[in-house]
Amino acid sequence: MLQRLLPTALLTLALAACSTPPPDEQEQAAAASEQRAEDAARPASEGETATAAPPTDAGACDDVQAQWLVGKAPADADLQQAQKDAGASTVRMLKPGQVVTMEFRADRLNAEVDEKGVVSAVRCG
């Protein structure tokens, strides 16, 4: 009896190892942001007006809208404008070596700066 169950159990384990886990919240938000960027970059079809699609989640941040911040040494006004442009409810500047919380927040804009205080990346999370 055990000899019959062993192959079935091994096959079940092998199939379970091949299954893809569901995407987490951060992956879903990144995919949604990439899709919005692709949609915004695509030219409008004839007879169709080009309008920016609103974020799928009203509280979600769209980092594509704040990429103008990259390469700047931002003042507080720049960070506030980037937050508004991205539709984020909060913004934070991340300095090299700074200890930060790792929880993902779809409504937060992160501006990563280098040692000189120049923004090197802007992302939601």
Rank of each mutant, 00 (worst) to 15 (best):
K72V: 06
P55S: 12
V118H: 08
Q83V: 07
Q83D: 05
G47Y: 09
A106N: 02
R42C: 14
L109F: 05
F104S: 11
E27M: 07
G87V: 05
E112D: 12
A58L: 06
G47V: 13
R36V: 06
E46H: 09
V70M: 03
A41P: 01
E48T: 15
L109I: 03
G71Y: 03
L79R: 01
F104W: 09
D62T: 02
D78K: 08
A16P: 03
S45R: 14
A29Y: 00
R92C: 03
V113K: 08
A41I: 13
K72C: 00
K72G: 00
E46R: 11
T49L: 09
R105C: 03
D63Q: 10
D24Q: 13
A75C: 12
C18N: 13
E34I: 14
A32K: 10
C61V: 05
Q83M: 05
E38Q: 14
R92I: 02
K84R: 13
L69Y: 01
Q35D: 12
A40C: 14
S45A: 15
V91N: 03
A29G: 00
R92M: 06
A30D: 10
D62A: 01
T49H: 00
L94R: 04
S89N: 07
D114E: 10
L15T: 14
V113C: 01
Q83F: 04
Q65S: 07
G87I: 10
T20N: 05
P55T: 05
R36P: 00
G47D: 12
R108Y: 03
T56C: 09
G117E: 15
V100A: 12
Q81Y: 09
P43R: 11
A40W: 01
A53S: 13
P21E: 10
S19A: 12
Q67M: 05
Q80I: 06
G71C: 07
G117A: 07
V113N: 04
V99T: 15
P43V: 11
A31K: 11
A88M: 00
P21M: 09
R105D: 12
A52L: 14
Q80M: 14
T51F: 07
K84I: 05
G59D: 09
Q65Y: 05
Q80D: 07
K72T: 08
A50K: 11
E48D: 08
A111K: 04
R36A: 03
T20R: 03
A32Q: 00
A44R: 11
T51V: 12
T51D: 15
A73S: 12
M102A: 13
R36L: 00
